[in-house]
Design a binder for these strands. Structure first.
Length: 142
RNA sequence: CCAGGCGGUCGGAUGGCCGCGCGCGGGCAAUGGGGAAACCCGUCCGCGUGAGGAAAGUCCGGGCUCCACGGAAGUACGGUGCCGGUUAACGGCCGGCGGGGGCGACCCCAGGGAAAGUGCCACAGAAAGCAAACCGCCUGCCCGUUUCGGCGUGUGCAGGUAAGGGUGAAAGGGUGCGGUAAGAGCGCACCGCACCCCCGGCGACGGGGGUGGCAGGGCAAACCCCACCGGGAGCAAGACCGAAUAGGGGCUGCAUAUGGCGCACUUCCGCGCCGUAGCCCGGGUAGGUCGCGUGAGGCGCUCGGCAACGGGCGUCCCAGAUGAAUGGCCAUCUCCAGUCGUCACUUCGGUGACGGAGGGGACAGAACCCGGCUUACAGACCGCCUGGCGCU
RNA sequence: UGGGGCGUAGCCAAGUGGUAAGGCAUCGGGUUUUGAUCCCGUGAUCGCAGGUUCGAACCCUGCCGCCCCAG
């Protein structure tokens, strides 16, 4: 990992990083899935849809939801997979995701066992394929 | 030391970077939402705290909430079933009884009724249920033969017989002696069984004595009978707040058609409604708040009890999420099996020590709470007990 | 959370106390010059584990997997 981009949080005055909010409602999941903008990587599936205009978020934030179906394992496997994806999302999407969209990340069977670096690259590729990649503009939320 | 039985405890450790939920305290110049403001949401900082022994399966029992209900009994349905205890309750647990297994520590099983009734017992077998004669065995007659005492290789007839053979899971007590034509509880002894009496025990039951020659096959996890228990639903219970849209009601204003409906009917007249605008009201959806953690609570000591368990005292506050927090990545240590190398021992099968690189560390995630049951589980530790071997 | 159903050969399945039917598919053989058709043969931990019974796919108990319904 040459990117020592883990520069600890800049002082909270200005230039604050985008943060990730959760997408908690079933209706939002259905709306994102209905847009049919998606990409399946070995470790995850990404779905993207434009955020409705009437949703006001703090500037630079994106909303992400997670889905883990019962087919990928028992509750422990589902929880662990979702947490690893959440960690990958925190690392990637705060810098590289378009801020005018909502996202849904779906757990696949391989998610729990896949190396974490691969999960990160899976997510980056999926963002590019879904035309939602905003190349590393730290905090340049516009 | 080896093999085994029972009970219990634990469920990797430490650290680094980055994060999450909840609680408490503090900050917020500017920016986002609300507010007249204080301030709230939000955001930032600090501190505290944050999964299990099964949180699981949802198989039982309760608390709690709502609904139903005059009492009691009965019926139906479902469940439970040796006895006594324990408990809020249980189908749980503890102790005991009976049967079975094991050298033993110990483990496993289960209500009663088949003499209230119905039903089933395939195949085989003579016969499978008011017992029954296939082969045998025995007696008599007949037949044959005869040395006239008998004898039987007879396809015969009439009887006796449940000891033997054979079938079956099961064939109407077992073993032995006597007895008999052969046999048979026919008689006797012991065992089993049934009934009666006595003794011990709260009881299941056990012990002893007597009587009876033995009746009443098995299956009730087949229907069933008997006793006891059970109102229903479940925190998505339930309570409160409540947007947009549609619909309902009220008040006021306007309009009121040549129309429709109503005021019992017909004509005329009159009134009201069906229209629309504004304001207000209630039901209710999305959504939100509460329910929501001081409890049949944990730990320690002590007393009663064989125990389950109960009493007393002290002490602690110990998760509250809701597309669902309790994590992600890494390092070191630790444990495990295999592999490679070196060394030592060797009964040449291996065993042990050290080191190296990699691998693995289970089952599993609170969802209102509690008592159990069942199932899953890498590995480690502790205590008691049994059998065997060796030494003293 | 509550309720219901299913599991039998590779597939579809009958059987509900007494040797586990049948069809399709597979394989082997026959018929045919060859192939199709047709005929004969071939295969089962009855989801798993205990129990009741002389005997269990069937009855009882506990698990496992799948499907459906209601809120």
């Amino acid at each position: 990992m040459n990117t020592t981009a883990l520069e600890t949080t800049p002082q909270a005055g200005y230039c604050q990083l985008a943060s990730v909010a959760r997408l908690p409602k079933r209706a939002d999941f259905l709306r994102v899935a209905a847009k049919k903008r998606r990409w399946a990587a070995p470790g995850l599936v990404l779905q993207v849809a434009p955020r409705p205009d009437d949703v006001q978020l703090a500037e630079g934030n994106v909303r992400v939801g997670f889905t883990a179906t019962r087919k990928v394992g028992n509750a422990v496997k589902r929880n662990r997979s979702r947490r690893r994806l959440r960690a990958a999302v925190d690392r990637v999407m705060t810098r590289s995701a378009r801020v005018d969209c909502d996202y849904v990340v779906i757990v696949r069977a391989a998610t729990a066992q896949r190396p974490f670096a691969k999960l990160v690259s899976d997510l980056e590729i999926a963002l590019k394929k879904c035309d939602a990649f905003a190349p590393g503009q730290e905090g340049k939320a516009e």
